[in-house]
Design a protein around this nucleic acid. Structure first.
Length: 449
RNA sequence: GCGAUCGUAGUUCAGUUGGUUAGAACGCCGGCUUGUGAUGCCGGAGGUCGCGGGUUCGAGUCCCGUCGAUCGCCCCA
C-alpha cells in the first residue's frame, strides 16, 4: 500500500467491476421504467441550506443534530449535503413554481450523505433512486407510484421481496392512535427495554418495530391503527388496496409499519425481503429494499401551501446486491476482438474496429504483446469471435475469423465487414433460440471468403 | 455514540510456544514464440506485516493508543 497516498473517506466506496455493472444496470432499468410511467426527470443540487432539511425533518430528532453532513461555507452559512431527496425536491417545487405542473410526477437519482457508522449495505455516501408524485391527493397516485416500484423490482429480477403496506391515517387518526399507544405502553413501562422507555418519550410509534424480546411480548396486544381510522382515512386506504389489486401488485398488510415524522399521512410502505430468502441473507440487518409513503404535511413545514404528495426511494447499492448480473447482461454477448499481427496490420485493424463499433458491435482491440498475449486478451474480453489480421490477410484482402467457443477458423472477405460479423452473431442467436446447431464456420463463411 | 471481530504482496490468504533472509495461490510483467486464448514451460517484479508507542537480547506474533474495515446495537429522513 502506498504510504503517502491519502485514503478514501470513511464510509465512502469506490465501485468497480461487477459491482459497478450491477449499479449501472439498476440505474438504467430505473430510467427505462420511469419513462414507461411518464415520470419526469429532475436534477437537484447535492447541497442545500441546512434549514431545508432541518425544517423538513423536524428540528427535534437527533437525525438533524447528529446524522447530517453539515458545514459552514465561507460566508458563514450552514449548508448540508443532502441526506434525502424529498426535502430538496419540495424546496425546488416551491421556489421554481412547479405548482403549474401539478400533479407532477418526478424521478431522480444520485448520491446522498449521512453521517452514520458504516455497516453492511449502509454507507456515508450512498446512492438512491427516487420517485415522487407532488400535488395529488388521490389514492390513485399512491397506486401508480407503487405499481412503478413493483415493476422496477420485477424487471431487475429481484424476487423474495414483498410489499409491506400500512396506513397511518389522517392527522386526526394518527393523533388518536399515538395517544392510545402511549397510554398502553405507559402501563407496562417498567417491563420495556431501556431503549423503548426512551422511545415512549421521544417516538412512541417506534416501539412497534423494536427488536428487543422484552418489548415484543407487548406488541401483539398493542392498540391497532384500524380502531382509530376515520371514515375518510379508511376509504382512502381501501382505494389504495383495490387499486393495487387491479394493477396486479401483491402486498401484505403490515400493521406495525410506521413512520417517525409527523408529516407522514395515510399510506406507508416498504418492500422487505421475505424471511429466509436469499435477499434477506444478502442484506443483513439493513433489510428495506425500497420504502416511502405519503407526506401531505411536508410542504407546509417549508413555508409552502398545503400540498399533498407521495414518494419513495430505494438504495442503489442494496438493489445492486440483489440483481442477477448474468441475466442483466443478457444482451452483452455481441463482442468481437480484433487482433492485429505485425505492425503493418495495425492500421487496418483499427479501421475494422471503428466500423464494428459504429454498427453497435462491442469490440476490443488487442494491441499489446505477442499473438498469444493478444489471444488471451481477446478471450478475457469475452469475445465470441476474434478477427485476426496479419500480412497474409492484408495481402489477400481477408481477415481470419476465429470462433472462440469452438476454435474453428475461416477467412472472411475484408469488405464484408461489418455485415459478415453481424450475420455470424445473428445466426448464432437464431440457432440458440431454435435449439439448433450452427453449421461449421467454414461453411457459414464460404460465400464470403 | 456503543459493542464484537479483524488489519501481512495488486487480490484472497498462510505464517508454529516471540527466534536468522516473511511464504503460497491467483493476478501482473518478461521470455520460449509478435501467427493463436480457454488448456504448455521458464523467469521476474511487487511487503519498513495499517500507523505510533511500549515490553523483550529479539515482535508479523505480546501490551497500550490510534486510524481503517467488517458485523451488530442506537438511529433510520
Amino acid at each position: 500500500m502506498a504510504k503517502n497516498t491519502p485514503k478514501a473517506i470513511r464510509g465512502t466506496q469506490d465501485i468497480f467491476g461487477s459491482d459497478a455493472e450491477a449499479f449501472s444496470h439498476v440505474v438504467e432499468t430505473f430510467e427505462r421504467v420511469r419513462k414507461l410511467y411518464r415520470f419526469r426527470r429532475a436534477e437537484m443540487p447535492v447541497f442545500e441550506k441546512t434549514e431545508v432539511f432541518a425544517r423538513a425533518i423536524g428540528e427535534t430528532t437527533d437525525v438533524v443534530s447528529k446524522e447530517m453532513y453539515s458545514f459552514e461555507d465561507r460566508g458563514g452559512e450552514s449548508l448540508t449535503l443532502r441526506p434525502e431527496f424529498t426535502a430538496g425536491i419540495a424546496r425546488a417545487y416551491l421556489t421554481n413554481g412547479w405548482q403549474q405542473h401539478a400533479p407532477l410526477k418526478l424521478a431522480t437519482h444520485g448520491p446522498l450523505f449521512r453521517y452514520e457508522r458504516p455497516q453492511k449495505g449502509r454507507y456515508r455516501q450512498f446512492h438512491q433512486i427516487d420517485a415522487e408524485i407532488i400535488g395529488a391527493a388521490e389514492p390513485q397516485a399512491d397506486v401508480e407510484l407503487l405499481a412503478m416500484a413493483d415493476q422496477l423490482l420485477r424487471e431487475l429480477g429481484i424476487s423474495g421481496v414483498t410489499l409491506q403496506l400500512n396506513t397511518l391515517g389522517d392527522g386526526e387518526t394518527r393523533g388518536a392512535w399515538r395517544a392510545a399507544l402511549i397510554e398502553y405502553f405507559s402501563k407496562v413501562r417498567g417491563d420495556l427495554s431501556e431503549d423503548s422507555q426512551e422511545r415512549l418519550e421521544k417516538n412512541p410509534l417506534r416501539i412497534l418495530d423494536s427488536k428487543d424480546r422484552r418489548d415484543k411480548m407487548f406488541l401483539a396486544d398493542a392498540p391497532k391503527i384500524d380502531e382509530f381510522l376515520s371514515d375518510e382515512a379508511g376509504i382512502f386506504f381501501e382505494e389504495v388496496k383495490s387499486g393495487l389489486d387491479a394493477a396486479g401488485v401483491e402486498y401484505k398488510r403490515a400493521e406495525s409499519l410506521v413512520r417517525g415524522l409527523d408529516y407522514y399521512r395515510h399510506t406507508a410502505f416498504e418492500f422487505i425481503p421475505d424471511e429466509g430468502s436469499a435477499a434477506a441473507d444478502a442484506l443483513g440487518a439493513q433489510s428495506t429494499v425500497l420504502g416511502g409513503g405519503r407526506y401531505d404535511g411536508l410542504m407546509e413545514s417549508l413555508g409552502g401551501p398545503a400540498t399533498p404528495a407521495v414518494g419513495w426511494a430505494a438504495g442503489i447499492e442494496r438493489l445492486a446486491m440483489l440483481v442477477d448480473l448474468e441475466k442483466a447482461q443478457g444482451n452483452d454477448h455481441w463482442v468481437v476482438a480484433v487482433v492485429p499481427v505485425g505492425d503493418a496490420a495495425y492500421i487496418e485493424a483499427q479501421k475494422i474496429a471503428s466500423e464494428l463499433r459504429s454498427n453497435s458491435i462491442i469490440c476490443e482491440m488487442a494491441f499489446r504483446g505477442n499473438v498469444k498475449k493478444r489471444m488471451q486478451k481477446a478471450a478475457a474480453a469475452g469475445a465470441r469471435f476474434s478477427l485476426i489480421i496479419g500480412e497474409d490477410e492484408l495481402a489477400n484482402g481477408v481477415v481470419t475469423v476465429r470462433d472462440m467457443a469452438t476454435g474453428e477458423q475461416a477467412t472472411m472477405r475484408r469488405n464484408w465487414i461489418p455485415q459478415g460479423v453481424f450475420d455470424l452473431f445473428f445466426e448464432n442467436d437464431a440457432a440458440k433460440e431454435q435449439g439448433d446447431e450452427v453449421a461449421p464456420l467454414s461453411e457459414r463463411l464460404r460465400a464470403n471468403s
